[in-house]
């Protein structure tokens, strides 16, 4: 069953055709990767899917309904969480608090109820914190719970951002270059973490440059070049695709 379906999406920025007629599906439970050289339109595609940009043409169907034209928070409420290429942690908040914000969609107390600290909001807050510490355990960051998130080492910041997205309990998780700026050890750690996410019944769509990571963890790969999809196949088949080797893999390996 396909969870996310991108159909004929195009986007132009002035004279630049960022995306042209891109279509692909993400099946339920899969880990799918988007690869392509810099400027291929990967992040633009992410921003279109998650509602931060509007395409000129096309459609994005998520969980059976069209989400194009919805605000990002509305798409998030339908079960899509994302991370950002430039880490966007909440400043002046601890690691735990950052993750607690991810529970927003799974709690309901309003301004007035929270101001009055009603019994139901107290109960809700306990639940939020339980899930929060469970996620910190999952990330192996329990020791840093009370540290200010933006003061952590870069690799751990990436993990907090991932944990914050996981706290949303999304049906699909969009990861924009989760290994960018990480060293080899941290990248391996991130790869293990992403593989374990599948065990939490989360579908993953990721943009990534680190080919070893992509080959390790993804089921399917979509290759973009200059805004067009040039290939889509199983990971091992992509490695042998002559077109892909020419425009992308060849660049570094030639």
């Amino acid at each position: 069953m396909k969870l996310l379906s991108v159909r004929g999406v195009s986007k132009r920025f002035g004279g630049l055709q960022a995306l042209e007629d891109v279509s692909f599906d993400v099946p339920q439970g899969a880990i799918k990767a988007l690869i392509g050289p810099n400027g291929a339109g990967k992040t633009t595609l992410f921003n279109l899917i998650s509602g931060f940009l509007r395409p000129d043409q096309g459609s994005v169907v998520f969980g059976g309904t069209e989400v194009l034209g919805l605000a990002p928070h509305q798409i998030a409420a339908r079960g899509m969480a994302r991370t950002f290429q430039q880490i966007r942690l909440f400043p002046r908040m601890t690691v735990l608090e950052n993750i607690l914000v991810g529970r927003h969609l799974h709690s309901r107390g309003g301004f007035l109820a929270c101001m009055l600290n009603l019994p139901f909001t107290r109960k809700e807050e306990r639940g939020i914190r339980e899930t929060g510490s469970e996620i910190l355990d999952f990330l192996g960051l329990s020791g840093q719970a009370d540290a200010e998130a933006v003061h952590l080492p870069y690799g751990q910041q990436r993990m907090v951002e991932l944990g914050r997205a996981l706290a949303c309990e999304p049906r699909i998780l969009l990861l924009d270059e989760p290994a960018a700026g990480l060293n080899i050890r941290e990248t391996a750690e991130m790869g293990r973490l992403i593989s374990r996410i599948r065990g939490r019944n989360v579908t993953v769509l990721l943009v990534e440059h680190d080919m070893s990571l992509v080959m390790d963890i993804s089921d399917d790969i979509v290759v973009l070049s200059y805004g067009q999809k040039i290939a889509e196949d199983k990971a091992h088949a992509i490695q042998k695709d002559p077109e892909v080797i020419r425009v992308y893999l060849g660049e570094g390996d030639a």
């Binding site: 990002p72 928070h73 942690l89 914000v101 927003h104 301004f111 101001m115 009055l116 914050r164 949303c168």
Partner: peptide
């Protein structure tokens, strides 16, 4: 009232807007 608010989900939602509005949107706020 305000101390209760800032230590609640609603207070965290407000603080999250401060500094990373797009990330707050992505969290469904």
């Amino acid at each position: 009232l305000l101390l209760n608010l800032i230590h609640s989900r609603e207070g965290r939602a407000l603080s999250s807007i401060h500094g990373a509005e797009d990330a707050a949107e992505a969290m469904g706020i």
